[in-house]
């Protein structure tokens, strides 16, 4: 096992002590199979226990450890140390979110927006459980499956310049999940979701930079979801214009 030397420049901020964030440098001898998260954990355990950040699963599925690594939003548990070998690596909290403390950002905004787009199955009539499952062909499943893979890590929000400029924008992950339910053969909630999505700060603030999809560590392609959503939203708008609005 060989070692990889890294110089981590970590953005530190404690609102009780600091006026503004500042960088602190740590030298870390990393094992070559480590991820950046392992290096940060090493700092926390062995060098500076005051460092704060979120992490849990270490397998790129819980979405806790999104952070800016050399300026790009990434999951620290999925960014291999050897890709940064013998270099300075800048680690900052996810861009476009307020910094709560060190690498921890305030995520309330996303939680509120996610709720707004009604990311759950909406039915005009519920089918009783006793009648079994809704049939859904593998093709129907595949139509929306990709968009169910979002882990809410918020890397896409950190990558989105429109969210940076217009914080009211509902944003990639939440809208992609709205699209996920619209595209689910079991769902009948398109018209209801349309009310939120068609607002100016809904899907229309997206200018299709595609940076959300480039950043997505789970290859969800929110940019695709949002463009599809623009089309369905437009169709729905014209339908409502001529009085045929219901899905």
């Amino acid at each position: 096992m060989s070692e990889v030397q890294l110089e981590l420049e970590i953005l530190r901020y404690d609102p009780e002590k600091d006026q503004e964030p500042h960088f602190k440098t740590y030298q870390v001898a990393c094992r070559e199979e480590w991820m950046i998260l392992d290096a940060v954990n090493h700092v926390k355990d062995e060098v500076d226990t005051t460092l704060s950040y979120r992490w849990s699963c270490h397998m790129a599925v819980c979405g806790s450890c999104g952070m800016m690594i050399d300026g790009q939003p990434k999951l620290a548990c999925k960014a291999a140390v050897k890709d940064y070998a013998d270099k300075k690596v800048r680690i900052e909290p996810l861009a476009n979110f307020p910094i709560e403390r060190d690498l921890v950002v305030v995520q309330d905004d996303f939680m509120e927006k996610l709720k707004r787009v009604k990311p759950y199955i909406i039915r005009k009539e519920e089918k009783p459980i006793e009648e079994g499952e809704y049939k859904q062909s593998p093709a129907d499943l595949k139509r929306f499956k990709q968009f169910t893979l979002c882990i809410n890590c918020l890397c896409c929000y950190a990558a989105c310049p429109e969210y940076a400029l217009t914080p009211e924008f509902v944003g990639p992950a939440a809208l992609a999940l709205a699209h996920r339910y619209n595209a689910d053969s079991r769902d009948q909630g398109l018209a209801e979701r349309h009310k939120e999505i068609s607002k100016p700060e809904g899907v229309w603030d997206c200018s299709f930079t595609d940076t959300c999809s480039i950043a997505c560590p789970k290859h969800v392609d929110p940019a695709s979801a949002l463009q599809q959503l623009k089309i369905t939203t437009t169709v729905q708008w014209y339908k409502e214009l001529i009085g045929m609005g219901d899905k």
């Binding site: 926390k44 226990t49 005051t50 460092l51 704060s52 950040y53 403390r101 921890v104």
Partner: peptide, 11 residues
């Protein structure tokens, strides 16, 4: 504990 902060004190 080396971290005495009230804010997100993971220590």
């Amino acid at each position: 504990l080396h971290d005495k902060s009230n804010v997100f004190n993971t220590d």
